[in-house]
Design a binder for these strands. Structure first.
Length: 552
RNA sequence: UGGGGCGUGGCCAAGCGGUUAAGGCACCGGGUUUUGAUCCCGGCAUUCGUAGGUUCGAAUCCUACCGCCCCAGCCA
């Protein structure tokens, strides 16, 4: 597993900054608190914090909270926790809403300068006047009203004297611009919504294009990194800062430069907040932290580590193209880490009883098992070999397929870290279903190969009477299409088997008291994490990822 | 000819006029193995969207074409 010390791979943003040296680097991670963070945010977080760290700069966490309709304290807290969990420390905790007063002063100055005006067209009319992608728009009849009149209206809007939609503040740029963002963009709208931080103080709220650039400039951000869809907004970003700077307002502004990078896409899932919100609201998943969600909280609950997510971000790179990453990359980073660090245990997901007829009823032979095959320093634990054990139903086949290396009638197999057993007899119920298998063990095979023959397979097992009942959740990809959004309705692509619950799993006794959050490799099956739903007598485990499987 | 961006192996991605075109994931062999895991060793682009051009020399420069993505919220 790559460690923290691995250098971040070169990318176009780092190259750009290297050429600017010596340079101050101040970045920000600016989420809107309207949902939980996902892997796409993790990419941005690693980029922003990583670059600042490597160039001796700093990073602010800023909540872009200008739309009170969708934002909440719950989301804000979840975001803070996730950024911290990922291992990053911000210099200042900032809020766009802390700049509302300054932003208002700037708007007044822009109006006085003739760079903004209050429009009284309806939303629908504004849309019509905007023109189309290929045709220029038309100027609003209110565009040339006096600054005094606009100022008076703005004050009334602020004072709550007008209804939502009655008026709006727009920048006076160019209604014929080929860049739609420059066709007199709106910068303030009337919204009489309670804001989770500013309460009912404001009845007008600034919009993104106006707020973001000024927030960056106020905080002294030098490198404003955002995704590709904002490329067209860059001229506006620069326009606003320049106009406000030349307007003599008493607001200190730096000179941030916006640079765009490609967003993250991951196969078999969706990474759009809008869609994730829908999955939660429609209860397609159990919540933002459902282990199938590509959210940071979902991945955390699933059992992913902060290291693995950072390593994922390091591997996918940063370019100007929209990458579609295969799930295999995510699976590999967590496998690599856990292969090194996770202790091994045995767990039988779907038990089949095996009676070792060659040992006595009360046989209780204590075996010592290594916690890790290649790391003796991780110690060992004990496990009893008893007359009755459970093995995996899938590890026995009466009519085995070709190359089957497990237990078959009359065949031998090794019980992992124990003896070689031979299947002598199959017990079935009235429906012909195998309910029990009778075997004999070869007492001369503990810790050594059997004489004169080779045993093809090794299977995991637990002592029946001492094992711990458990519920194990096997997670798979949330969608069964690589690009769910390409479907008519992406919800039709939900994978009905994204969660399979093994209700009768049996764990080896050492797992009875495993602390919540601990990660193990259940041998031959995959990596699992102890879930918070566990109770002292009944552990609940989530499968993080299966082992690489070149057979099935 | 609205504007803006992107095209290097199945998926990412280095590369910035002279390299045998890095690396990772995936895949395919072979070896080790009491996890069909791990580990090890080997293979995997005569070619960089296409076609021309400049040059002693091009993935890197120029031209044209093709393909894909984004933009007409009082969302961010």
């Amino acid at each position: 597993m790559a460690s923290e010390s691995d250098p971040a791979p070169s990318n176009f943003i780092r190259s750009m900054i290297e050429k600017q040296t010596p340079v101050n680097v101040a970045t920000r991670f600016p989420p809107e608190p309207n949902g939980y963070l996902h892997l796409g945010h993790a990419k941005s977080i690693c980029l922003n914090f990583g670059i600042a760290r490597d160039f001796d700069g700093w990073t602010n966490l800023r909540f872009d909270d200008t739309n009170p309709d969708k934002e909440s304290e719950e989301f804000m807290n979840a975001i803070k926790r996730d950024v911290e969990w990922l291992g990053f420390k911000w210099k200042s905790l900032c809020y766009a809403s802390d700049y509302f007063d300054d932003l208002y002063s700037c708007a007044v100055a822009l109006i006085k300068n003739g760079d903004a005006y209050v429009d009284s067209l309806s939303a629908e009319e504004i849309r019509e006047y905007r023109g189309t992608l290929k045709e220029p728009g038309q100027e609003s009849p209110y565009r040339n009203r006096s600054a005094e009149q606009s100022l008076e209206l703005l004050e009334e809007m602020k004072a709550g004297k007008h209804n939502e939609g009655d008026h709006i503040v727009r920048l006076k740029i160019d209604m014929a611009s080929s860049n739609m963002n420059m066709r007199d963009p709106a910068i303030y709208r009337i919204k009489k919504t309670h804001h989770y931080r500013t309460g009912d103080k404001w009845s007008i709220y600034p919009l993104y294009d106006y707020t973001h650039c000024l927030s960056d400039a106020i905080e002294g951000i030098t490198h404003s990194l955002c995704t590709l869809e904002f490329e067209d907004h860059r001229p506006l970003y620069e326009w606003v800062i320049e106009k406000v700077k030349s307007s003599a307002v008493a607001v200190e502004l730096g000179s941030p430069v916006q640079t765009e990078f490609g967003p993250l896409n991951l196969e078999y899932t969706v990474l759009s907040k809008r869609k994730l919100i829908e999955l939660v609201q429609k209860e397609v998943v159990t919540g933002w932290d459902d282990p199938r969600m590509p959210t940071i909280s979902g991945l955390r609950r699933r059992g992913f580590t902060p290291d693995s997510i950072r390593e994922f971000c390091r591997r996918i790179g940063v370019t100007k193209s929209s990458a579609v990453i295969e799930m295999g990359v995510l699976e590999t980073v967590i496998r690599e880490e856990l292969n090194e660090s996770a202790e091994r245990r045995m767990a039988v997901l779907e038990p089949l009883k095996v009676v070792i007829t060659s040992v006595a009823e009360d046989h209780n032979e204590i075996l010592t098992l290594a916690n890790h095959p290649n790391k003796p320093e991780l110690g060992s634990r004990q496990l009893a070999f008893t007359r009755e054990v459970y093995i995996e139903q899938s590890d026995f086949e009466e009519v085995p397929p070709p190359k089957f290396k497990r237990l078959v009638p009359g065949g031998e197999v090794r019980l992992r870290s124990s003896y070689v057993i031979r299947c002598d007899e199959i017990i079935k119920d009235e429906n012909g279903r195998v309910t029990e298998i009778h075997c004999t063990h070869d007492p001369d095979t503990l810790g050594k190969k059997p004489e004169g023959r080779k045993v093809k397979g090794v299977i995991h097992w637990v002592p029946a009477k001492q094992s711990v009942p458990s519920l194990i959740r096997i997670y798979d990809r949330l969608f069964n299409k690589p690009d769910p959004l390409a479907e008519e309705n992406y919800l039709d692509a939900i994978n009905p088997e994204s969660l399979v619950v093994m209700e009768h799993a049996q764990l080896e006794p050492a797992l009875a008291t495993a602390p919540v959050g601990t990660r193990y490799q259940f041998e031959r099956q995959g990596y699992f994490a102890i879930d918070a739903d566990s109770t002292p007598s009944h552990p609940v485990c989530n499968r993080i990822v299966g082992l690489r499987d070149t057979w099935s």
